[in-house]
Design a protein around this nucleic acid. Structure first.
Lengths: 337, 337
DNA sequence: GGACAAACTGGAAGCGCTTCCAGCGAGATT
DNA sequence: AATCTCGCTGGAAGCGCTTCCAGTTTGTCC
């Protein structure tokens, strides 16, 4: 036998019989429904205690059409992307928020076609009560799938080409502006930026923040190179910027990984940071403290992102009409700028 | 309305009616059961296609007593621990393995008492078909909970004080031995180790590997300091070792984080790595490539760990009797040793 | 061509719970 | 004392599926 044979769990019928009441009465006390006399309640509660009764999730789900499960779907072509600490933080936030409910978390890494069709199936077979979506790019088929399934859905971050009705996002625009303004405040003028992928909303928003801050300060955006949020991407972009604009004196990197790559290239090129070149990153997910020099960066609270997504979804499931949220970002000063 | 009202999914009854057969016949063709004539099958399949029928998960679960969901529980006092890239890798492995089945993954971060009781409840209410457990320390209540629930369970790593019947673990002992032997092969003799927490099996196994290798080589274990797998822990341990054994010439650190902390302290103390002191770490989860100098370390395949746990659990659920697995580790040479 | 087995079929009984509804008695009202 | 509430109760009908079983059809063999 694969596992110790469990004693069969008692059923509601058995509890009711033991308490000497009908099944419906027993059900009522369990669900704290009204119209239950004190005596009935006591009898049922005693029976429950004595028998160690726990209502069967599945049966309840069938009757109520509510599974008590919500999905968190991470959609991306590269499953390795999930290894980004970002998602771990989201999950910590989601879990924390879920602990205050009696919902559980189903995690779907829907990268491959297979993964996506499994998810589709899950949604259509009413396997979950709602879904949180993350890391969608452009016209991810998932958006259509989810819409078609007609399930409560909240987005973490915004997809590029449509604004979901319910989403939670970090203030990427504001954060990027903050970073750039800080650089400007330092007296730097030849400020360049290494962006994230311009095929994502995050990438674009952070770039726009940079541009806006520059222009507001009467400066012209000095140079831009597209990165991909990774360290190697950042290094490559840095090299080309150093080639084309050797006199640059500050960098806003759209992620800390990007900044780390840039940092490495700068040091190799003999520039000192922050003396010759000031660097500001974005994210502040641990990595920023470990670079040399430690990175001044824009902090976003990813746990809060997860937490708020969850609360929003719970609201939605409860039939309320929450409104989307933009979470504030803030500048964290370290040594690189 | 919180979400677009979904068209009600057709039921099996409706499919059967449309196909002009009984519900049981329809059920049989869906489940590919025997005793179905060609004509019946065709009719039902056509109806299914036409109506876009998908069997309701919950109803099926109630009838079969199988939910189609497995849990991955991460138990630890500190929810932040989950941010360790280790778990992300496990999850990637688990997901990959699950994609070949029609099971879904429920993730439980059961750190708090509340989290644990939610998990207990989930198990007892038959909310999942099986469970994978990770990061248990000492006498985690979870072990009892799981045993009592009588559900198929596999462990990732071994708890300290009992050997689970089904587990997957990395060859920590062998890996540590490999690392130490490498150091010995380099001609080092005053080799010290910074361990993980000795209250964990991993911590002890890696320590034992170090000792065994030393003794086999006719050396005496030179010095040991207990760390906690973190960078700061590693740094602290390194400091005390440097105090007590200033002439040490090599270090086996029980994790890459630990090694990174040690590295920092060594460089600050003016020792050059690997010239003065050779350093070997353990894990190889990305961080090892980014230290300065890059870390020679023992690689463990965490995705494989997740994958094998999952396969084992699937086997168990299918009623087979798999056997536990120790996954090989291997030395990865970089610059630090 | 009749008997027998094999293949197929639909009815019905679950799985364990929620919830609607009609009925019942006790307290309040005149 | 007769009536009217109103709170409480249990019966029964679901939720959507699987599966056992007995009965019917079909095919096969002598």
């Amino acid at each position: 036998m694969a596992a110790q044979r469990p004693r069969r769990q008692p059923t509601l019928d058995e509890v009711a019989e033991r308490a000497g009441v009908s099944r419906s009465a027993a059900s009522r006390v369990i669900n704290k429904a009204p119209h239950v006399s004190r005596a009935t309640r006591d009898a049922v509660e005693r029976a429950i205690k004595e028998m160690g009764y726990l209502p069967n999730r599945t049966a309840r789900a069938l009757a109520t059409r509510q599974t008590g499960i919500v999905a968190l779907a991470v959609s991306h072509d590269d499953p390795e992307l999930f290894a980004d600490p970002f998602f771990a933080q989201v999950i910590v936030g989601v879990s924390a928020a879920l602990e205050e409910t009696d919902l559980h978390l189903l995690l779907c890494l829907a990268s491959s076609g297979r993964g996506r069709s499994r998810l589709t199936n899950l949604l259509h077979t009413r396997g979950v009560d709602g879904i949180m979506l993350m890391a969608l790019h452009g016209d991810d088929p998932l958006t259509h799938i989810v819409r078609r399934a007609g399930l409560p859905a909240v987005y973490g971050g915004r997809p590029l080409n449509f604004e979901p009705q319910w989403y939670v996002d970090s203030d990427n625009l504001g954060g990027a502006r903050l970073a750039t303004e800080h650089l400007i405040g330092l007296g730097r003028t030849r400020i360049v930026t290494i962006t994230g992928p311009m095929s994502t909303d995050v990438g674009r928003a952070r770039h726009r923040g940079y541009r806006e801050a520059m222009i507001m300060a009467g400066l012209t955006p000095y140079a831009t190179a597209e990165g991909d949020f990774t360290e190697t991407g950042g290094a490559a972009a840095m090299k080309s910027l150093l080639d084309s604009h050797p006199d640059l004196d500050a960098i806003f990197a759209a992620s800390d990984d990007t900044a780390a790559g840039a940092l490495r290239v700068l040091l190799d090129a003999g520039r000192s940071v922050p003396a010759d070149v000031a660097v500001v990153g974005f994210d502040d997910l641990g990595m920023a403290e470990r670079t040399d020099p430690p990175l001044t960066t824009v902090h976003q609270s990813v746990q809060a992102l997860g937490r708020e997504m969850t609360r929003m979804l719970v609201d939605l499931i409860a039939g309320h009409e929450p409104s989307s949220i933009i979470l504030p970002t803030k500048l964290v000063l370290r040594d690189s700028a």
